[in-house]
Design a protein around this nucleic acid. Structure first.
Lengths: 207, 207
DNA sequence: GCTCGGCTTGAGACTGAGTCTCAAAGTGGG
DNA sequence: CCCACTTTGAGACTCAGTCTCAAGCCGAGC
């Protein structure tokens, strides 16, 4: 048995992806229920218990899978952080950071444009619900921390020098442009592509 | 009596500034107590009841004066919105928006630098407390809505054209720079003046 | 000095989010 | 079939924030 021996805390290594797939499916299903309820009664007008009941799981389980009520809707944003960081790192070495950031954002834009209806609806809810806005911003702040190191590197800043505000400023400004583009996209009901609006926003700040 | 007659909802006109002054004083006093408790036990480790008890008022009254727990600490940021908008509007007509925004920020910097110790302590708490960060961001979003119209005007954008992302992008980016400068200022423990850090941050994005 | 009307306060009930504990399932491997 | 290990549901609990109501304060007019 020595070959299968493992430390006590070591979880079984073999429910590999199946569990995760299950998890993904159920998350998607719950999110769909929640979005429907939110659309019908508003975000604040819907209780977590209601979502749990409607989705057929217990309140406790719901909070186990989505840490907060907001994350039921915003959970899918979690992964964008690493996706962005990878996309940024993959840009050619000589490219100016601002341009590289613009191109990295294509990852998100492409993904969100796959179901514009859903994105538009979500964005609308986001605008009129303070707690959702706040949580959304929290996620973007996380993206920021993931993007800053690479931008620092490209700027030739000592990565340990937290006193240099430039990398933070660049990433924060770029994310502000992304938000502005999103707002404009919402304002025109998706008529103008986000990519165009984002170009327009980021050109205004061209370094 | 006709001369003193007024509509039913019209409050007596004559406790003019005294009430307000009282209010200001008590807000400051409560805030001081709260900040002390937060410093001792952390923001999340301190309950609103505790603050109320320590400050000598009821929980209900506390919520009457500060809408939320966060606002006990961040209440003073409320007024900056209008101050910023005024400062921006007062900048010379021909000045580029980015430069005008930079100069408008001097209002905040001057104000905050009057008690660097307090600001530094507050900023530190802000960094390590998600709910505070979120609320702070909410305030900045409000500033943004107050600044965008003037920037739109200076850009020659139709103010009703919500589809043009440029004004939003500029203001958002400027605020991002302000945040970056604040973070850097915190990182160097206030050694380098905020104004210098903000210059550095905003120059990086010079339009 | 008394009273009337409006405003502020405190007390306490109530809602809803989020955490924690515990016992009862389900599941996979030997 | 049994033995960990993990997931689940139930329910109690904390705390922020809202609401209601009764009591207190204060200035104005009599």
């Amino acid at each position: 048995m020595a070959t299968s021996l493992r430390t006590p805390g070591d979880a079984g290594p073999r429910p590999p992806a199946l569990r995760d797939r299950m998890r993904q499916v159920m998350r998607a299903e719950v999110a769909e229920v929640a979005i429907r309820l939110f659309a019908e009664q508003g975000f604040d007008g819907t209780t977590v218990d209601q979502i749990a009941a409607e989705a057929g799981l217990s309140r406790a389980s719901l909070f186990r899978h989505f840490g907060t009520k907001e994350d039921i809707v915003l959970g899918h944003l979690e992964g964008y952080g690493h996706a962005l960081a990878e996309a940024l790192a993959a840009r050619p070495e000589g490219e100016p950071p601002w341009e590289a950031l613009r191109r990295a954002f294509d990852v998100i834009i492409r993904d969100e444009e796959e179901s514009p209806e859903r994105t538009l609806k979500l964005l609308r809810m986001l605008c009129e619900t303070p707690s959702l806005r706040a949580r959304h911003w929290e996620k973007q702040l996380h993206w920021q921390t993931l993007l800053v190191p690479e931008v620092s590197r490209r700027l030739g800043v000592d990565p340990a020098d937290a006193q240099d505000p430039r990398a933070h400023a660049l990433v924060g400004a770029a994310l502000a442009c992304l938000d502005a583009a999103g707002a404009a996209w919402l304002a025109c009901d998706g008529a103008t592509p986000v990519s165009v609006l984002l170009d327009r926003a980021m050109e205004t700040l061209a370094a």
